[in-house]
Design a protein around this nucleic acid. Structure first.
Lengths: 119, 119
DNA sequence: GTCAGTAAGTTACGATCCGATACCTACTGC
DNA sequence: GCAGTAGGTATCGGATCGTAACTTACTGAC
């Protein structure tokens, strides 16, 4: 993104760089409902590798969307909680979950029709 | 995404694979307002390479979110138009644009605070 | 007639990112 | 002292991304 382009400092681009990402969306959605620990999150999200989860959580924490709380039990437990800011984002993203549920059929049908054309 | 996982066939995952992507979001947003040609779109979106634009448009067309109309002028012009289905998605994603505008300051502040901690 | 230009891509290739797997630390219970 | 648990990090191969050059098919200027 070149700085001389008018859209370069568009807030949406900055946000999209972080949020237009499957794992970030799924983690925020999972934490919307409840505080979760690392491995709980891994189970709930499903399909995420430890590396990507760790990376995603770090990025979300940096952006103030979640907080990380270490409790010195044995072994140490780490709780991830959504912040008020993250909650407003989660609500916004939830609209996408609803859209998905409502329109998945149309998308799958369009995909099938497209693939049938010009085999 | 393993098929034996309960979340595997969650509609949101399928949609996210396509939509959780900067260029797709920006293209849909651009076409929401008006039909555009390939190079117009390239200018409007800003920072996208021809390859990624071509790839993104192909994917969005496959999913029935936009249509591609070739007019045999010289040189050939190709118009991309959003579909009714795409329009509903664009409206949903517009909520994210509004969220970005409203909260970009908080995110940037959180990022700065995080980076200041533990240099 | 040939040289530059335009629209809409495609190709080649290097850089970066993602995912699977293995490993690490610090402690517990057996 | 050996396996197990929580929360990660390290490594490496394959997929994806971005940059730059090339392609096709035609137009208008010289």
């Amino acid at each position: 993104m070149k700085p001389d382009h008018p859209e370069a400092d568009c807030p949406m681009i900055l946000i999209l760089e972080r949020v237009a990402n499957k794992w970030a969306v799924l983690v925020v959605a999972a934490l919307w409902k409840e505080t979760l620990r690392f491995n709980e999150l891994k189970r709930v999200v499903g399909g995420v590798s430890q590396k990507m989860l760790s990376q995603t959580l770090k990025a979300l924490e940096r952006d103030g969307l979640i907080t990380r709380k270490v409790t010195p039990t044995v072994p140490v437990t780490v709780e991830y909680t959504i912040t008020p800011l993250g909650k407003t984002l989660a609500q916004t993203m939830d609209a996408l979950r609803i859209w998905s549920a409502d329109h998945i059929g149309e998308v799958v049908a369009a995909r099938a029709a497209f693939d049938a054309r010009d085999i």
